[in-house]
Computed example of a mutant assay.
Amino acid sequence: MVVSASGKPVKPVPDPAPAQQIPWGVNRIDAELAWPQNTGQGVKVAVLDTGIDLSHPDLLANIKGGYNAIKPNKSPADDNGHGTHVAGIIAAVNDNIGVVGVAPQAELYAVKVLSANGSGYLSDIIEGLEWCITNNMQVINMSLGTSSEVQSFHDAVIKVYNAGIVMVAAAGNSGPGDNTVEYPAKYEEVIAVSATSDNDAIASFSSRGPDR
């Protein structure tokens, strides 16, 4: 409790919420120029990751559901932070505070396939992909990868592709060598995305190759 010189309690004045910013990456692709025509409204985007902070004020309005493939009887809440960060890039709401995402009215679905330490099993990722098919997702983001090609994983990716779902995956952080793109980004059914720097060059750490 704050006390004034007169001895009477004084209520502290909370700091004002920070003004909303467009992250440099979102601004770099000119996402805001598309918003008058399309903000992602009605598009179901599954984030296969460590989960999403289900009470995050910049995401809450857009979170519509999810699934925990690791522990199906538990919530898909984020216990790492990575999935929440990714979800914010995709669809942080346009509410004049915090940041705003590429598609600020897209519907977010938290599909937890990675544990608190950011790692996981392909079996859980495959289960997450199956959930996406069953629940009619339209876009799947996978900011994850492995250097090993596993046929059951590719089979699951092909099944998702045949269901008409768009898959986007990180190329990986195994650069700068050539042909370093990881799976599932390396599969032809998936859109591979490398990282870039703020000077529009491919990031030194980013995987690269003919698949990206």
Rank of each mutant, 00 (worst) to 15 (best):
N96S: 14
Q20C: 03
A69R: 04
A31I: 08
Y183I: 08
I158H: 00
A185I: 05
N179W: 00
E149T: 07
A192I: 05
Q138E: 15
I133L: 06
W24Y: 10
P176E: 07
S6I: 13
P36S: 04
V168R: 02
E182R: 12
V102D: 09
T84P: 10
I97G: 02
I70L: 14
I140E: 04
G40H: 01
T50Y: 02
A192Q: 07
S206K: 03
G209P: 07
S119Q: 08
S148W: 00
S119D: 08
G145C: 03
V166D: 00
G88Y: 03
T134K: 13
G118A: 03
P57I: 05
V193K: 10
L54K: 05
Y67N: 07
V181W: 01
V26H: 01
T84M: 04
S207M: 11
G145F: 02
S194R: 03
P176H: 08
S115V: 01
V99G: 01
A46D: 06
R212H: 00
G101D: 02
P9C: 04
D211P: 00
L114C: 08
I165K: 06
D200P: 13
Y67I: 11
D211A: 15
D15H: 12
S147A: 14
C132D: 03
A69W: 02
P14I: 02
N135D: 13
G51P: 04
I63V: 12
N136W: 04
G164E: 07
C132L: 12
N94T: 01
L108F: 04
G51H: 09
A17G: 01
G7P: 14
L114E: 01
S194A: 15
S147F: 10
G81S: 08
A91D: 02
V93R: 00
D198H: 07
Q138W: 11
T50A: 04
G101T: 06
V193I: 13
Y183D: 00
D58M: 06
Q41D: 13
N62Y: 09
E189H: 01
N68R: 04
S147H: 08
G40C: 02
A46H: 06
I202F: 07
S55A: 12
V93L: 07
A61N: 15
S115Q: 15
C132N: 06
Q151R: 14
P210D: 08
P16A: 12
D211Q: 13
G65L: 09
Y121Q: 15
